[in-house]
Amino acid sequence: MPEPTGVIHDIGYQRYTGPRLGRRHVFGALYLHGLRTAFGLGRTAKAKIFPWLVVGIVTVTAAALTAVRTQIGQVLLTYAQFADAMSWLVIFFVAVVAPELVSRDLRSGVLPLYFSRPLPRGDYALAKLAALVTALWLLLGGPQLVMFLGAAFTTKTGMRGVWNELLDLLPGLLYAGLWAVVFASVGLLVASLTGKRAFAAGGIVAVFLMTTPIVGTLSIMPSRTVNELAGLASPSTLVQGVGAWALRDWLLTGEQSAGVSVGRFGPVYAAAALLLVAGSIVLLLARYRKVATR
């Protein structure tokens, strides 16, 4: 038997002289980490169940809609209407993912480990927000893409048909983006207030769902102005209101009238949505200026 030739040397501690990446890269790394966390990637199997359940439901729905459309030749839901129809699932997705992104870090006390590194506090919050926005947009945009592909491959008018379909898809993706930005900024702000995930999830559902009865009550008041402004009271109807104003042609089809009639207050809805997002981000940043300083 030959003598062992390999010897293990303890080379001791090695100093690091290689590159240290800047703020943009660190932000990117945290963003990607957040996006993976949102879908439970790199996490336990338990963390994957819910996100992928929701992804499965929306994708199957999109596939079913596409199948029906190719069979009976009728568009049941436009791309933008699809986003509206999925709003409940979006809310539940936010309620699960937003606490996963921020409440968990608050709970485990890991924030001092982040904030003792060069990364500014605001970057932490914004990277998490960007990750949630992207996750929501993918959640709605992915199935829209499925619908588009289904329609594009079965179109009877050749390239023109595909082009027309694409012109329908783009506003749909834009509308999905609006859903994503509004729901992510409000949801993340609520989740950042508590380290208990169950409380955070409950709070998010409450903010999004408990406000709908208010809209319902306001929309049956005798005043038409009140009716038309009623949608402002809840994030879901606010987004639908903006959609009804800006994407009228894509959202309102023939016999179906939209759930929200905004009358001439469309710009008010747009301004309110903008204010809601901006306000949520300002509060989120303020929250992270204070949190875990002691």
């Binding site: 485990s108 003792s116 060069p118």
Partner: peptide, 18 residues
């Protein structure tokens, strides 16, 4: 602070691990 933190390592007193 960023320049200091880049060259400093911090071990907090309290539980800090997910």
């Amino acid at each position: 602070p960023a320049a200091v933190r880049a060259r400093v390592g911090y071990m907090p007193e309290h539980d800090a691990l997910p």
